[in-house]
Design a protein around this nucleic acid. Sequence first.
DNA 1: GAGCCGATATTCT
DNA 2: GAATATCGGCTCC
Length: 188
Amino acid sequence: MTAPADPRLAFLEGDAPDVAPRLIGWRLLVSDGVETTGGPIIEVEAYTQDDAASHAHRGPTPRNATMFGPAGRLYVYFSYGVHWCVNVVTGPEGSGQGVLIRGIEPRVGLETMRMRRGHTAERPRPDRHLTNGPGKVCQALGITGADDGVALGGERVWLEPSERHFQVTATERIGITRDAHRLWRFVG
DNA sequence: GAGCCGATATTCT
DNA sequence: GAATATCGGCTCC
């Protein structure tokens, strides 16, 4: 029994390149017990084990172990020794794959996200800088390594269905060199 | 806005 | 020692 508890999330058991565009529009929400933050997913990238750009390409390590677990969990890793980035794990258990959340529309818990991102009265910045990058999404939503392996659908983090139509465009992935030709970045 | 650069955990050479 | 699924601060437009 490795399927996500929520039957609406059964599609996460598909392969990452198929799941990724379908995640566009789903509202990603995170609660710290007091404040809820999040918004619709608008930019993602797929990573598979058969993909030289993926952390899973060379097999399981302590860092990427969650990618080889059941679909519907978060894989959170520390990027460049500086930022946290979050994936939604996809595919059958034992396959190393996931969908990197590169951007959401900042909609829920705006004040909390501004505070976490350092958008203060002393240093005001436009909201468009809140969640327009994988490291920024984690900072605004309060996602850290403590969330690695957490299942979607609990009290901590969950998805809600899209409330409107998103036109999805496929492009090359960003910030990689190996297997960069694959059109596995999806923007809504 | 574009271009350069430093931060530095994890993994690989 | 080098590369990496990134970002913010800096300079110069």
